[in-house]
Design a protein around this nucleic acid. Structure first.
Lengths: 199, 199, 199, 199
DNA sequence: GATGAATGAGCGTTCATTCAT
DNA sequence: AATGAATGAACGCTCATTCAT
């Protein structure tokens, strides 16, 4: 029973990975269950054995990706708990950008979900974003409270950070390794300006 | 013949305008020729008299949308030619955000062109973005040269600005009118920090 | 414009007729748009130019058939307005049976609609049945009021009549012409017993 | 081996019972093997160990349903062997209606077998109906012979009775419990009129 | 120039059926 | 005996595209 369950989980994992790929490359609307199935070398119908439909598959893809991403950032924040605020935030920004560029270059498209989704799923996705957002929000608000950071508006600041980081792949992906590293560093440093107290 | 030509141009102009509206609101995949035709109060088939297909219409729409957008920003920059740099840049940022949020909420999706599009069209779109980018790049580089702005990297700065502005609709669209205006102001002010000389 | 409209109406009429045939032969669930289209020698998709979907097509089929049927009975009732009650009712029963057996042998299946239909459509069908029912109900209640008929329950009586008449094709269709006429007569006479005052 | 066989028979019996339930509730097309399996708490695939496919299962279900139904009526007729004819017939009608309305509301649909079914299966079903019919035919013909009943035509009378009873669910199912009981009583009494000697 | 009509390919989804284990 | 998994055909539906008029 345990073995069966493991097998099933592994299968689900592979399907979600393939789905995340496809949704990321094409966006929700242009993605086809056929293509997801093709990459897994199974038929369309098989997907329905594991997922109730396109929406659920997309949600699972987003959820998996979002959870993994968030947890890594949370772990990083913990690991740097004693570092100066600005350095901890820089590390988080840098890591976020690196994950976006190197591992999930398709994430932006994945989160560009159609407004037509059922409210429940959209709420679920909103939760994911919130938790993800919280990693950075915590740092920023604490820094502001401590007088080390200064922002015009926490929301606007976080919005700008997230947007810039999630679009980084569009800009960086085609660069050579070194230039890319430099670009990612530059972006992180640039985004730090958003919270630096201007004196 | 001249009169005929003018008439045709005007017709094309109206079609493209309607298409830009629809594509701008829904993105490429979710847009329907039926809806474009409906807004023009003609039938779907008529569009084919002027455009070879959806892709061409979309390209024309993107082009129009991009050109319109850029020209409005250029005009604004001209109008504020004598204003202090920082105020001119703020005005440009604010206007860009307003256009994105209020008029073309799906522009981000629209510019995320699928890899499957013909290279020619994608190149055309790249040109548009370049010209668009130039409006802000000019301001930033001039400001830096004049010692009034300071940036880590011009590319990273512009990249962050554009990303934040184009994703603003995701964040602002659902806000009430007043809150939305405030959010747009905050975002513009926040993005100004990216070029402010930190002293 | 008038000619175009006539053409369209004729087209719709033919589609509805084909649909009524198919739905009648197979029932709602087992009927296929493909088969309706095939009988019309067009493609499935064409049907959507005239009807929004399977449900609407089925509703139109039911509606057309039901209206025609009812109107003919109403006309008959008018024509026999001066005949004795029992003879007028007999004529109505006989005509109803004849229409069912000879013209719409498939009607029974057509009205066996799935419970899953949208409430609006089911309400529409209920209306049709009500109007159809009214032709007989009027006769029965008037007869009862006049003391010429006697029934246990008007509802039960009408229900039994309608059921027997609509199922007549199952029983009569395969009979030879003469035997079939006799069977239809017998059925009408039998059903008259339902209202005869038993003394 | 005998024990094994008994076990298997029991298993088959339970499957068929579940199938009869489902098919009786939903009709053939709308029934799913998945649902049958679910009610038995086994998987879809298991059913194929006992039945070659949906059609065979449906046939067995119809057969069971029909046999069960008939036997209950036969038992009832026996139990009331000494009652007056009219009361025995009333009891049979009432019971038939109750079974139709309360237990097999979709039986009508189920017996409206598509023409596409193999002739053998359809013949089988016809046999079932004949035996079923016989329960009532016996009562009616005997009553007529005894001079207690009077009918225009035995066939027409039985046809009307069966039709009214099998369509009763369409009419009664949505009534509240009390009203439904009353309706069933009324219908039985009404149908008795079909055989009552007039005057 | 424009329309009404039709087409056909493709999509998401369902489900009876098969089969290795 | 039974299960989990997979398949494939079919269905309802959408929509870009074509074309005679």
């Amino acid at each position: 029973m345990n073995r069966v369950q493991r097998k099933r989980d592994e299968r689900v994992r592979r399907i979600v990975a393939a789905a995340a790929e496809v949704f990321g490359e094409r966006g929700y609307e242009a993605s086809t269950l056929e293509e997801v199935a093709e990459r897994l070398d199974v038929t369309k119908g098989s997907l329905y054995y594991y997922f109730a439909g396109k929406d659920e598959l997309a949600t699972a893809a987003i959820e998996t990706l979002g959870t993994d991403w968030t947890e890594r950032l949370e772990a990083l924040a913990d690991a740097r708990a004693d570092a100066p605020r600005v350095e901890r935030l820089r590390a988080l920004l840098r890591e976020h950008i690196a994950i976006a560029v190197l591992e999930y270059p398709a994430a932006l498209r994945l989160f560009l979900v159609p407004d037509s989704w059922p409210a429940a799923l959209r709420e679920r996705i909103r939760d994911l974003r919130r938790r993800h957002d919280l990693v950075f929000r915590r740092e920023v608000t604490a820094g502001v409270a401590a007088g080390e950071f200064a922002v015009v508006s926490v929301d606007a600041t976080l919005q700008a950070m997230h947007a810039a980081m999630s679009q980084a792949p569009l800009w960086c992906s085609h660069l050579a390794a070194e230039a890319r590293d430099q670009a990612m560093d530059d972006l992180a440093t640039t985004l730090l300006r958003l919270v630096s107290s201007p004196r």
